[in-house]
Amino acid sequence: MKLMLHVAPGIVRKPIVSSVILETKALINIERAKVDAVSGEIVVDVDLDKCVEVKRAFEERGVRVVLLENPIIKDDDECVHCGACISICPTGTFRFEGSEVVADAGRCVQCASCITACPQRALRLVLK
């Protein structure tokens, strides 16, 4: 399961991810991180059985955690199944099933590469 971590000002300089790993002993994979001087946005992937524990551990440290259950929406009226989204996605969210493009939204880390790559503007991030 992927979690979106919104790291607020004041705690962004602290080793939050490391301390959560030490506490929960969960294998946490950082899929995407955008951290600047004042805040950060980190997407991590965690095993389903550790998910609740890890979420609580982050929240105890002041991080706002959002489960990325359905991070991206494909408008099937707009999609023409060209596949432009397939090769530019770093996590392999899109693939052909026959000649149609299908999305495995669970893989999406909301990097937004596909949003501008889609000529039909058929993709939208669900921002929380």
């Binding site: 023409v80 060209c82 596949g83």
Partner: peptide, 20 residues
């Protein structure tokens, strides 16, 4: 979906739609 460029596997994707 994949072609070889200088020994590396590179993903391919289309702009035209085979489906349509």
């Amino acid at each position: 979906g994949v072609v070889d460029i200088d020994g590396a596997e590179v993903k391919t994707s289309a702009l035209s739609s085979r489906h349509v």
